[in-house]
Design a protein around this nucleic acid. Structure first.
Length: 604
RNA sequence: UGCCCGAUUGUGUAAUGGUAGCACAAACGACUCUGACUCGUUUUGUCUAGGUUCGACUCCUAGUCGGGCAGCCA
C-alpha cells in the first residue's frame, strides 16, 4: 500500500487523551518505569479485524507518544485453536496498519530467541528484550527478527510454576473437568476446596513433573493456584494454571503436552518482556486480581506490569467477533477472510481503505469504559475524508443507457479537458472523447421524473460533465416498451471555451463514449447486515444482507486501463474505487467500490 | 440473588469542584460543470432522588437502568 497522504497533507492532529493515557502520563511523571512498553497480544486463531485496530492504535499510540515500544506478541497458549496462517496474516496486518506511523516503536525479538537469565536488582531473573532500537523498523521482520511468542516462554513459565508449588501456592488437582466445575460453586454460592488441595509440596512437584513428562492423559490432572475457593471473584477460586493437552504446537513443536492457561501465561509474558502497561478489554476486569496475584506470589525482582481495561469497539451493522467472522468464512457467506465486505483488516485493505483512514477512525471513537456502539456513518466519514483529497477523478458508467448525439457525426471525436482532482488547486487535466454515441447512467434518465429531478428527462437538458449541455429529443423503446436509446442534440456552444460555456442547467451527469471506452468488472459492496446490531441477533446469519454484493460490467474511460493496485479513484458522482488485489489483472480490470459518495438526493 | 464495570443531545466523546464543548448524524440555506466537497445557520443532553458546597457532569448516600463474570478458550 502506498502514500500515507494524511501525514503529509495535514499538521499532526493533537495527541488523543483518555483515562489510560492519563495513567501512563502519571507513571511517566513519577518515573515509575525507565521506558513505557506496551504490547499487542492477539491469539493466532483468526484474522485481525477493525476492533483489533483500536487496540493496536491504542497500544502503539501510547508507545509512540512516550518514546516507548510496543511488542507484537502472539498469545499462543492453546495449540488446539491456533494456526501459522493466522500468525502470518496478523503480522502482515499489524505492520500494514502502523506503517509510516508507529513502526519505529514496533518491538520484535531476535529470531528464535527465548528469555535469558539475567540479574535484576541483585537477584536472578529472566528477561526477553526486543532487538536493539537501532534496527531500522522498515527492515523488520528480517531473517534475524520476529514477533514475540508466549510459547517461547514455556520453559520459564514451567520454572515459575515449580516456584509457585514450592511456595505452597499451587497444587496438582485430579478433579475431572466436570467435578472442577461443581467444586467452583456459583456466583452467589461459595465453592468447596478440592480434595487434592492439601497435597504436599513434594507430591505436587513429582506429579507436575510427571504431567510434563506425559505420563497422564488429557485432562486427567491440572495445576491449580491455591487462592480461595470462597472468593466472591470467581477467577480467584483456585483457577487452573496448566492443563494436559497431548497436541503439538504450531510454534513450540512437540516438546510440550502441558500448556499454561491465559491468566497464568499472560501476566508472566508481560513481565518477561518488561511490559509496563498491559492494556486489554473490559471482559478481563475480573481477571486483574488474578493477574496481580500471580506476579506478586512469585516475588519478582523487576517492576511489575499492570493491567488496564477499555471498552471494545462495536460498530453498527457490523460483526466483530472472531468466532462469527470465522462462521461467515466457513459457511461461505463471504469469499474469505479478506472479502471486501469483511471488517477484517485484510478485507478493509482489499476494499481500498487506507491504514491512515482506519487509524483516524479508531482514534476518533475514543477510549473509555463505556460499552458503546459507534455508528457506521462515523467510519464512512473517515474513509471519505481520507480519499477525497487524493482520489483521481475518472468517468465511469456502471449501468449504461445509450444516448445518440444526433448532431455529431459518427466518425467525429471531440476532445474535452477533464480535471483530475478538483480538491487540488494545481490539478492536472486529461482528455476525454465525446462521440456521437455516448453512455450515461440509467439512473440519470427518467421518462416520468419525480419532483425536483435534476437529471435527464424527455425534452429536458443536462450537462455532460466536462463536455456540453445536451437536450433529450426522443425516447426510443423496443417492442416491450423498454427504453433502448435516447436521441439528443448537443449544444456545442456550451463547451469549455465556447460562447455559452456559462449557460447553467441544474443537472450535470457523468458519461463515457460508447465507442471509446473500455469494459471492466466492478464490484459494488453494501453493508453485510441488515440490522444495526447483528451481533445481538439470535442467529446473525439470518440478517445477512442478500444484496451486499452486486457485480456489474461497467464502461470506463480508457484512462483507467493502466490503473495500478495502489491507485485510488473517484468515479465521478458514484464513489471511490480501486483495483481488486486478487482478481484484477492486466487486461482484465476488476474494481472494488470502497464507498459511495454521500448522496443526499437518494435519501429523499 | 454474589462480585465487578458503567451511565453526558440520535450516536460517539470532552469538561478532573467554576461558561456543558467537539465530531458524526439530522434539518435548512449558500456555493457548485460531482445532488460530492466547502461554507453558514439550527435542533436535541449531564439516569433518578437526596446530601455536601458560594458553586456539582464532577464529591457523598440510596436507588434505577445497562453490561461483564461460574472454559482444562483468549
Amino acid at each position: 500500500m502506498s502514500a500515507e497522504h494524511s501525514e503529509s497533507s495535514a499538521a499532526a492532529p493533537p495527541a488523543p487523551t483518555d483515562f489510560i493515557r492519563d495513567l501512563v502520563a502519571q507513571d511517566v511523571a513519577t518515573q515509575r518505569y525507565a521506558k513505557i512498553i506496551t504490547r499487542f497480544p492477539p491469539e493466532p486463531n483468526g484474522y485481525l479485524h477493525i476492533g483489533h485496530a483500536k487496540s493496536i492504535c491504542l497500544n502503539f499510540g501510547i508507545a509512540r507518544e512516550n518514546n516507548g515500544q510496543c511488542n507484537l506478541r502472539f498469545d499462543d497458549t492453546n495449540p488446539a485453536k491456533e494456526e501459522v496462517e493466522y500468525v502470518d496474516s496478523i503480522a502482515t496486518d499489524v505492520r500494514w496498519l502502523i506503517a509510516g506511523w508507529a513502526d519505529h516503536c514496533l518491538g520484535f525479538k531476535p529470531k528464535g530467541a527465548h528469555p535469558v537469565a539475567v540479574t535484576s536488582n541483585g537477584r536472578p531473573d529472566f528477561h526477553r528484550a526486543a532487538v536493539p532500537p537501532s534496527t531500522p523498523s522498515d527492515q523488520l521482520p528480517t531473517a534475524s527478527a520476529e514477533p514475540f511468542f508466549a510459547s517461547d516462554y514455556f520453559d520459564q513459565l514451567y520454572e515459575y510454576a515449580l516456584t509457585l508449588i514450592r511456595k505452597g501456592k499451587a497444587y496438582v488437582c485430579d478433579l475431572s473437568p466436570a467435578d472442577t466445575d461443581k467444586y467452583r460453586g456459583a456466583p452467589d454460592q461459595p465453592g468447596r476446596d478440592s480434595p487434592f488441595r492439601n497435597r504436599t509440596v513434594a507430591e505436587n512437584l513429582d506429579l507436575f513433573q510427571r504431567m510434563k513428562a506425559g505420563e497422564f492423559p488429557n485432562a486427567a490432572r491440572s495445576l491449580r493456584a491455591k487462592i480461595n475457593m470462597t472468593a466472591p471473584n470467581l477467577w480467584l477460586r483456585d483457577p487452573l494454571l496448566y492443563r494436559i493437552r497431548h497436541v503439538p504446537h504450531h510454534h513450540a513443536g512437540d516438546k510440550w503436552c502441558i500448556y499454561p492457561l491465559y491468566d497464568y501465561a499472560h501476566c508472566l509474558s508481560d513481565y518477561l518482556e518488561g511490559i509496563t502497561h498491559s492494556i486489554c478489554t473490559l471482559e478481563f476486569v475480573d481477571h486483574r486480581a488474578l493477574y496481580d496475584w500471580v506476579l506478586e506470589s512469585l516475588d519478582l525482582p523487576r517492576a511489575l506490569p499492570h493491567q488496564y481495561e477499555f471498552a471494545k469497539l462495536h460498530i453498527g451493522y457490523t460483526i466483530v467477533s472472531k468466532r462469527k467472522l470465522l462462521q461467515l468464512v466457513t459457511e461461505k457467506v463471504v469469499s474469505g477472510w479478506d472479502d471486501p465486505r469483511m471488517p477484517t483488516l485484510s478485507g478493509l485493505r482489499r476494499r481500498g481503505i487506507s491504514a491512515s483512514a482506519l487509524r483516524t477512525f479508531v482514534t476518533s471513537v475514543g477510549v473509555t469504559k463505556f460499552d458503546s456502539v459507534t455508528e457506521v456513518a462515523v467510519f464512512e466519514n473517515a474513509v471519505r475524508n481520507d480519499l477525497n483529497p487524493v482520489a483521481q477523478r475518472r468517468l465511469a458508467v456502471l449501468k449504461p443507457i445509450k444516448l445518440i448525439l444526433t448532431n455529431i457525426a459518427a466518425d467525429e471525436t471531440i476532445e474535452c479537458d477533464a480535471t483530475n482532482n478538483p480538491q487540488d488547486e494545481n490539478s492536472t487535466t486529461r482528455k476525454v472523447a465525446l462521440t456521437r454515441e455516448v453512455l450515461i447512467e440509467s439512473d440519470d434518465f427518467a421518462e416520468v421524473p419525480p419532483p425536483k429531478y435534476f437529471r435527464l428527462k424527455p425534452g429536458g437538458e443536462v450537462r455532460l460533465k466536462y463536455a456540453c449541455i445536451i437536450r433529450c429529443d426522443e425516447v426510443v423503446k423496443d417492442a416491450s416498451g423498454r427504453v433502448t436509446e435516447l436521441r439528443c442534440t448537443a449544444d456545442l456552444t456550451t463547451r469549455a471555451g465556447g460562447p455559452n460555456v456559462d449557460r447553467k442547467v441544474k443537472g450535470t451527469v457523468h458519461w463515457v463514449s460508447a465507442t471509446q471506452s473500455i469494459a471492466a468488472e466492478v464490484r459494488l459492496y453494501d453493508r453485510l447486515f441488515n440490522v444495526a446490531e447483528p451481533g445481538a441477533e439470535e442467529d446473525f446469519l439470518k440478517v445477512v444482507n442478500p444484496h451486499s454484493l452486486e457485480v456489474v460490467t461497467a464502461r470506463l474511460e480508457p484512462y483507467l486501463a493502466p490503473a495500478k493496485l495502489e491507485d485510488r479513484f473517484q468515479f465521478e458522482r458514484l464513489g471511490y474505487f480501486s483495483l481488486d488485489a486478487k482478481d484484477s489483472a492486466p487486461g482484465r480490470l476488476v474494481f472494488n467500490r470502497t464507498i459511495t459518495l454521500k448522496d443526499t438526493w437518494a435519501k429523499k
